[in-house]
């Protein structure tokens, strides 16, 4: 059936898989490995015993403690990036079974519920690999600077409270502000592609993440001061117009941020800004 909604896939099916999982089973974990930038990748498969509550992190930790492949070959522990392990820092993002997501919230009971089930772990493809599953996401933060994603306050001296805000407005901003810069939206975006050279970052597509953050700060009373500057960037090469409306971003966003609404909202803003600019001077 026709689908214009921000989510696809069945939560019920996932819950059923979780319920069917047998504790104490052995699963296979295939990891795409790479020793460093410019080096070839290879696959290694590990056999891991998992219990209830096991996730990709605990599986990788087990492998690290005893890095032996299914062929019995001693290898090195898998390198990966992680932090909070509760899906608020965004660090442990990787491609699992072909789709991007956080590895900490990826439960084995759901992804490999049966004896001998296999999962595959790959690094994100839109950022340069550092080693194994660890990628360099500097561009993502660079893009935040590109759209001046901050409120230009006068300084940290005491100047009283900030602007009052309606609760409805707060709810909109809070949702946008939950973005943890994990990069899922960029990994899944067909318009956002690997750019190894930082010199290209200012003209390559900026992606849903930064567009949504630009909207967040344009919605703030004080943040509005930089609105035009942000819109100018988003009207330029790699700006919001480069969006191809595949809308994968909103489907893979782990925080369910209405990214496509942000894109449309910024679309409206640049439309109006473009028109007024054209007629102004």
């Amino acid at each position: 059936m026709l689908n214009f909604s921000p989510s696809e896939g069945s939560a019920a099916a996932a819950a059923a898989r979780r319920a069917s999982a047998k504790p104490g089973r052995t699963i296979r974990v295939s990891v795409k490995r790479c020793e460093g930038p410019g080096q070839d990748s290879r696959w290694e498969t590990f056999s891991v015993k998992v219990d209830r509550g096991a996730n990709v992190i605990s599986v990788l930790q087990q492998i690290a403690a005893n890095p032996v492949t299914v062929e019995g070959k001693r290898t090195t522990p898998v390198v990966w990036d992680s932090g909070c392990l509760e899906e608020v820092c965004g660090a442990c993002t990787m491609v699992i079974n072909g789709k991007v997501r956080q590895s900490c919230s990826c439960l084995m009971d759901e992804y490999a519920p049966g004896e001998g089930d296999e999962i595959t772990l790959e690094p994100m493809t839109k950022f340069p690999v550092v080693r194994d599953l660890w990628v360099d996401r500097s561009r993502l933060f660079h893009n935040l600077a590109r759209v001046k994603a901050w409120v230009p306050i006068d300084g940290t001296y005491y100047l009283g409270a900030g602007p009052r805000e309606k609760p409805q407005q707060q709810e909109v901003r809070y949702k946008l502000s939950e973005c943890m810069s994990c990069g899922c939206c960029l990994e899944a975006c067909p318009q956002f592609n690997l750019e190894e050279n930082p010199a290209d970052w200012n003209t390559a597509f900026i992606g849903a993440h930064a567009i949504s953050q630009a909207r967040l700060f344009n919605e703030h009373e004080t943040g509005k001061a930089l609105r035009d500057e942000r819109l100018e960037v988003l009207m330029g090469p790699g700006g919001v117009s480069d969006c191809g409306n595949a809308q994968n971003c909103v489907k893979v966003c782990p925080k369910h941020i209405p990214l496509t609404e942000s894109i449309a909202s910024v679309g409206r803003a640049v439309t109006l800004h473009g028109l007024t600019r054209w007629f102004k001077a």
Binding site: W150, V151, I153, T156, Y158, L159, G160, A161, G162, R164, E165, K166, P167, Q169, Q170, R173, Y174, S177, F217, H220, T222, G223
Partner: peptide, 17 residues
């Protein structure tokens, strides 16, 4: 708190803002 408020932290709001 006031400073964070100025920085744009989306503190939860009362109906009066």
């Amino acid at each position: 708190i006031d400073l964070l408020d100025r920085m744009g932290v989306p503190f939860n709001r009362t109906s009066e803002g």
